[in-house]
């Protein structure tokens, strides 16, 4: 009992948030344990950012409870919650240097001697030597790291990250993924990472919650949600999915052959796309349904118009109640 209480750092109980025009968050319950990396994954408008803002304290829930370290914080303003946010736009104070941006929160707490902590934080995000720069003089990745340091220096119970990688280019985004993950493991602070990018969520998280239309569809480890999606939505949202009859089959589970003895359907090759590390073969099944097979290795060389045999194992079929 005692252990359970210590570990649940954040708990949402039946949280609802209504806006004048619509219900953004619809009866969400969620428990976050200390020291783990969580992702809240969903398409834009699914309510994930609102959920984040509720936790940070920028919005008040219409009903339900938010508990931080076991204490109800529904009515606690953002500046008295030990939660910190990394904003999508970073929201660095344009008139303050890197150093002063990072010191801002410590100053608000009334701490007197914080230069050591600030220096440490600057070092941690590898910005030593740039501490006197203004935000306008930093690159996108550097701004991102200042925003991170500014929050982490406060040692929050939870760090909320609102699509923090969205503004970066692809290469930098990949680098920052690894860096964020490493940072989380080093500091041991709970991260709650909001994103619409499934690859990002799968790569970084210990646990993913998938949101859809204000509700949480499923929570689980990346492997669980990818291999055993609880709903049709999750199956379609995470990775690609072929819908054959009333079963879903992942493209990589489809096997095709020119004349296999055992097969479930014949199909005509409509297009073969070479992607470097894999080949995507677009198929028209005999049922009239379309499907994509992802093939790796050299065996894949099919021509448009060719007639092939398609097979998959029953273990790879996913079925959902309608």
């Amino acid at each position: 009992m005692m252990i359970a209480q210590m570990q649940a750092i954040l708990e949402l109980r039946n949280v609802v948030k209504d806006f004048p025009s619509h219900r953004a968050v619809d009866d969400i319950s969620l428990t976050l344990e200390a020291g783990r990396f969580y992702s809240l994954l969903g398409a834009s408008g699914c309510g994930k950012t609102t959920t984040l803002r509720l936790i940070a304290g920028f919005e008040k829930p219409t009903s339900g409870e938010i508990l931080l370290n076991g204490t109800r914080v529904n009515d606690v303003p953002p500046y008295r919650r030990n939660v910190s946010t990394v904003f999508q736009s970073y929201a660095l104070f344009p008139h303050l240097t890197v150093e002063k941006n990072i010191a801002f929160g410590l100053e608000q707490r009334g701490e007197r001697s914080f230069s050591g902590k600030v220096e440490q934080a600057i070092e941690m995000v590898r910005l030593s030597g740039k501490s006197k720069r203004l935000p306008a003089e930093l690159s996108g990745g550097e701004k991102q790291r200042v925003a991170l340091a500014r929050s982490l220096v406060l040692e929050p119970s939870i760090l909320l990250l609102d699509e923090p990688l969205a503004a970066l280019d692809l290469k930098l985004r990949r680098e920052m993924r690894a860096e964020l993950k490493a940072m989380q493991q080093r500091t041991g602070i709970t991260f709650l990472f909001v994103t619409h990018d499934q690859e990002e969520a799968l790569a970084m998280s210990d646990e993913i919650a998938i949101m859809h239309r204000g509700k949480i569809e499923q929570t689980g480890t990346p492997r669980e949600v990818y291999r055993k999606p609880a709903t049709r939505f999750v199956a379609g949202f995470l990775g690609a999915m072929n819908w054959i009859g009333d079963a879903g089959v992942r493209p990589e589970a489809l096997r095709i052959a020119r004349n296999g003895s055992e097969y479930r359907s014949t199909a005509r090759v409509e297009q073969s796309l070479f992607l470097g590390n894999a080949v995507h073969v677009l198929l028209k099944l005999e049922s009239g349904e379309s499907a994509t097979a992802e093939l790796t290795g050299a065996e894949a060389d099919f021509r448009t118009g060719e007639l092939v045999h398609v097979n998959w194992s029953s273990a790879d079929e996913m079925r959902f109640p309608r």
Binding site: A56, G57, F58, P77, P78, Y79, R80, V83, S84, T85, F87, Q88, S89, A91, L92, F93, F104, G105, Q108, R109, R150, S151, L154
Partner: peptide, 14 residues
Amino acid sequence: DPSLEEAAMDLGAT
């Protein structure tokens, strides 16, 4: 940036 004030409050400013 509309997040600027929220960021300040998030960092503990009234």
